[in-house]
Design a binder for these strands. Sequence first.
DNA 1: CATGAACTGTGAAGCTGTAGACGGGTCAAG
DNA 2: CTTGACCCGTCTACAGCTTCACAGTTCATG
Lengths: 185, 185
Amino acid sequence: MEGLGTTYTVSVLARKFGLSRTTLLYYDKIGLLRPSRRQENGYRAYDAGDAARLAQICAYRRYGLNLADIGRILDHRGSDAKQVLARRFEELGVQIQELREQQRQILSLMGSEHLERTDLVMSKADWTALMRAAGFSDADMFAWHVRFEHQAPEQHLKFLKFLCIPDEEIHQIRAWSAAGAKPDG
Amino acid sequence: MEGLGTTYTVSVLARKFGLSRTTLLYYDKIGLLRPSRRQENGYRAYDAGDAARLAQICAYRRYGLNLADIGRILDHRGSDAKQVLARRFEELGVQIQELREQQRQILSLMGSEHLERTDLVMSKADWTALMRAAGFSDADMFAWHVRFEHQAPEQHLKFLKFLCIPDEEIHQIRAWSAAGAKPDG
DNA sequence: CATGAACTGTGAAGCTGTAGACGGGTCAAG
DNA sequence: CTTGACCCGTCTACAGCTTCACAGTTCATG
């Protein structure tokens, strides 16, 4: 206030955004967020504009963008936000797949008996129980898989991974889904 | 070879396991995998035992364990593999949630129009179309959500996030699912 | 005016797991 | 003996901070 606008010191601004002081010092060092002014004693003086920029930075961080990308977007240095976010979105898809893969690996190693009552994953058994309770017969579920596989194979795969089904079994399910016929047994 | 058993140099062993030479050098430095012998010229000489240990390391890495944990497990320093893997499993669940959250944030910011035909996520519309095609009426889906919410609320939440539904909508769906009655409109 | 707490500044190092550069050794071909 | 293609070990860099060390400042209290 006081006519010249609000200013913040590092720690105050950091607290305002739930960051640590050193994080802001780091942002300063790499040029992502420089305080527009310094006090006579050399202390950093951030103004409302700086705070607004920091708000943007935090927002983009929430999407998981790295600081370099954020810098490019904010300074309009050839990077368009939409394009960067779209790229990040795809990256996230890949990462999620990887982590889920690790989860399934662990699961298939330990078997669910050792992960006592995890509640963390939806298992195939849980899912089919739910569907059966909703009136789905085995035949219905089969038809549903077939349709799913034909309509959106990628998403079918994702869904099966979501259920933490082992690779081989996923492969089998997709195979008979694609063929439209379940093998004997 | 020559009767004293097979030995490998760094690069050879690295290639054998699809790792880079520097990775093995790093493992040596942190004490995770020390070659049991050195040649006269100072070159690292890994034997079959070392290779076996490396195989274990790679296996654990596939589950996403960090090197410190792997070291503790292999050297039996108070860490039991099952317990560490279980911990890692939960960690993975949290991380996946976070990444998916980022994905949903991006999606809700950009709207699906900008992510042209991504195929990367299953949308609510895709899902309901599939269920309708399988003979589910709106009322059936409603009942299904109610059952899901009561039977496994955590997993219901996960599933809704899997469909990349915005937070507020998830909240609403869960609210009426829990209540067992859909509000007007 | 001295003391201390609580702030500020700078700089350097550490973390994880890996990639790459650098200079030097090894070995066969010419 | 030299050239070239490899190999080796060591050192440095990356992200995105955090932690540490050390010094100067501000302000309230005694």
